[in-house]
Computed example of a mutant assay.
Amino acid sequence: MILKLFFLFTLTINISASSIDILTSYRVNGIDSLQKQLDKELTTKEYWTDFLKNKDTKFGYLESYCNVLACNKEKSKLCIYIKDKNTSKYQLMKEYSAFTGKEKGDKVREGDLKTPIGIYELTQKIAKVDPFYGPLAFVTSYPNVYDQYRHKTGQGIWIHGLPLNQERDEFTKGCIAINNPSIECLDKHIDISKTVLLIDEADVKTDVPKEALAHILSDLYKWRYAWIYNDLEKYLSFYDQSFKRFDGMDIEQFTTYKTRIFNKKEDKTIIFTNINVLPYPDTQNIYKITFKENYKSDSFSFIGDKTLIVKFQNNGISIITER
């Protein structure tokens, strides 16, 4: 307990000029009030602005990813960026020539011969594939939550090699293909659990403004604060009227569902780790937020991955889908 209090005291000194008020609240009301005020500090843009000051936000705010794969379909290239262990900055390591879908534009439906535009995980490495796909392949997470929200169809979007024993066209049915030495090189340099794939028609966005990220992270924690402290009205204010959850629940159904849960007035613990905030390719104001959520109340507990797709406008976020 002494160590916990020392940590909390040190944190308050570092993050807020109002540390005397926080300590007074702790003296009068106990440690629960101190936790609430610290949760409140995490909602401030000032905290996140200071926190991001020396972070590399080339692609956004990334806690989970050591490797970024950026595919420019127009220029037929796939670049690998690796986070330098000493500087924590993402450095371009390799640029591979790449084949993409025969047709231009974003993938919409099965069989349209287009490579999707978006943000994807690498979910699996397949070491033994049909020789047409070269020595190995990486499976992507297409269709992702945002794809499903927009009713896209199709599956089986891979990064793979070239045929071992035959010629092929200079395009794919929607996958990303690179030559076999390149995919073997890629395999040596990435951990798929720590790699994100960004696909755009042109160059992937870089140098994401810290100002926007600070607003988004501040709002993420305002949403969390309302959730923890049972402020239903504030919590629901973060949801867009066009909201539809991954399972099809619309905003009216979601409101009814959350009202029932909030009415229990349960104490909750909600911790976010491995947070990532990335601007969505080929959009003006859509961001993908992912994190590991640790949720615990008297009636329910959950530890797992969470995804929010948000609009960022007027310096605030509006959630349009989540999983």
Rank of each mutant, 00 (worst) to 15 (best):
Thr140Arg: 02
Glu74Cys: 08
Gln35Pro: 00
Lys77Val: 11
Gly105Gln: 11
Asn14Met: 12
Cys66Gly: 10
Tyr133Leu: 10
Tyr65Ile: 12
Pro116His: 02
Lys83Asp: 08
Tyr26Lys: 08
Lys53Leu: 09
Ala137Trp: 12
Val108Phe: 06
Ala127Cys: 09
Asp56Val: 07
Leu69Ser: 13
Tyr47Asp: 00
Ile82Cys: 09
Asn144His: 03
Gln148Ala: 05
Cys66Arg: 11
Tyr90Pro: 02
Glu63Met: 14
Leu113Gln: 12
Asp106Ser: 07
Gly101Pro: 07
Tyr142Arg: 00
Ser141Glu: 02
Gly101Met: 01
Met93Ile: 11
Lys73Leu: 04
Asp56Glu: 05
Thr43Lys: 11
Ile20Cys: 12
Ile119Ala: 05
Ile13Cys: 13
Ala137Ile: 08
Thr44Asp: 03
Leu122Asn: 06
Glu41Met: 06
Gly118Ala: 09
Gly111Trp: 02
Asp112Val: 10
Pro135Glu: 10
Tyr146Gly: 09
Ser19Cys: 12
His151Ala: 10
Ser33Ala: 09
Gln35Phe: 13
Lys94Asp: 13
Ile119Leu: 01
Tyr146Thr: 03
Asn29His: 07
Pro135Ala: 02
Ile31Pro: 01
Asp106Pro: 06
Ile13Ser: 13
Ile117Asn: 11
Glu103Tyr: 10
Leu62Asp: 00
Pro116Gly: 05
Lys104Ile: 04
Tyr90Ser: 14
Val129Asp: 03
Lys114Met: 01
Thr24Glu: 07
Leu34Ile: 03
Lys77Pro: 02
Lys104Ala: 02
Val68Thr: 13
Asn54Thr: 05
Lys55Gly: 00
Phe51Ala: 13
Leu92Tyr: 15
Glu103Arg: 13
Phe51Cys: 00
Lys36Met: 08
Ala17Arg: 14
Leu38Cys: 08
Lys77Gln: 11
His151Leu: 05
Phe132Asn: 05
Ala70Leu: 15
Gly134Ala: 09
Gln35Arg: 15
Ser25Thr: 11
Met93Thr: 10
Lys53Phe: 14
Gln37Arg: 14
Thr12Ala: 15
Thr115Ser: 08
Lys104Ser: 10
Ile22Tyr: 03
Ser97Ile: 04
Asp130Ile: 00
Lys77Glu: 13
Lys104Pro: 06
Ala70Lys: 15
Thr24Ser: 03
Ile117His: 01
Ile15Gln: 03
Thr57Pro: 01
Gly105Ala: 06
Val129Pro: 03
Ser18Met: 10
Thr100Met: 09
Asn54Ala: 01
Lys36Glu: 00
Asn54Tyr: 15
Leu42Phe: 14
Arg150Pro: 01
Glu121Gly: 08
Lys83Cys: 04
Gly60Phe: 11
Lys83Gln: 13
Glu95Gly: 03
Lys75Pro: 02
Lys58Pro: 05
Leu34Glu: 02
Glu121Met: 10
Phe51Ile: 00
Ser88Gln: 12
Asn67Tyr: 12
Tyr133Ala: 08
Lys128Tyr: 11
Tyr96Ala: 09
Cys66Ile: 03
Val28His: 11
Ser25His: 14
Lys75Phe: 07
Pro131Leu: 06
Asp130Phe: 09
Val28Cys: 04
Leu136Asn: 08
Ser16Cys: 13
Leu136Pro: 03
Ser97Thr: 14
Asp147Leu: 03
Phe59Arg: 15
Ser97Met: 12
Thr100His: 15
Thr87Leu: 07
Glu121Thr: 11
Phe51Gln: 14
Lys45Val: 10
Lys75Tyr: 08
Asp39His: 09
